[in-house]
């Protein structure tokens, strides 16, 4: 697998960096690929803009920063406006449809999918698992990481007592992703 660049964007408090961590760990530890996670954040702990940048693949990762994302996971309008112009032609854009509204058109080759991740999270019972729903959605659509690796990573990265809730959130996003792309379970 060629190295893929992924950017996750939102605001502080949504678990953006945690989502990046779970994804990076799933890829590097459980799927035996190379993965590098870098992040950028403001001085505030909550509410400021926030992004996680990942490079995942089988090649040696030299330059660790994402220069042009192949895949975007977007959880705020600010992140949408800021990052979508950077997306590689033919890339994948995934966004939370209640937190960001499309403001631009993409070429035919770009795959654009949306999910009401935060709303689903509220239905499950915890708004904070929206990031995990996004990861499930991403896993189904991208096919880059095995769902097993993702679940292992989620279980070892979430607070004890909340593992099942988070796995449930992952499944919710994963199923939604399969449906959107007409894949079989």
């Amino acid at each position: 697998m060629k190295n893929i660049q992924i950017k996750i964007g939102g605001f502080g408090g949504q678990g953006i960096v945690l989502a990046g961590y779970i994804l990076g760990k799933a890829a590097s530890i459980h799927d035996k690929k190379n993965a590098t996670l870098t992040q950028s954040y403001g001085p505030e702990s909550r509410g400021g803009s926030c992004s996680a940048q990942l490079i995942i693949g089988n090649d040696e990762i030299d330059y660790p920063k994402v220069s042009q994302p192949d895949i975007l996971l977007i959880m705020s309008q600010e992140a949408y406006d800021k990052f979508t112009p950077e997306l590689t032609k033919g890339g994948i854009l995934l966004y939370d449809e209640d937190l960001a509204k499309p403001t631009n058109n993409f070429g035919k080759t770009t795959r654009v999918h949306s999910i009401p991740a935060t709303r689903y999270a509220e239905e499950i019972g915890k708004k904070v698992v929206a990031n995990i729903i996004m990861l499930g959605f991403f896993t189904a659509i991208s096919g880059l990481i095995s769902p097993d690796a993702m679940k292992k990573s989620i279980r070892s990265s979430t607070p004890s007592g909340f593992e099942e809730l988070n796995v449930k959130a992952f499944d919710r996003g994963y199923e939604s992703g399969l449906t959107k792309t007409n894949q079989k379970k």
């Binding site: 590097s28 996670l37 870098t38 660790p64």
Partner: peptide
């Protein structure tokens, strides 16, 4: 800062 905060295997 980059090496301190970046995550890898």
């Amino acid at each position: 800062e980059i090496v301190g905060h970046m995550m890898e295997k």
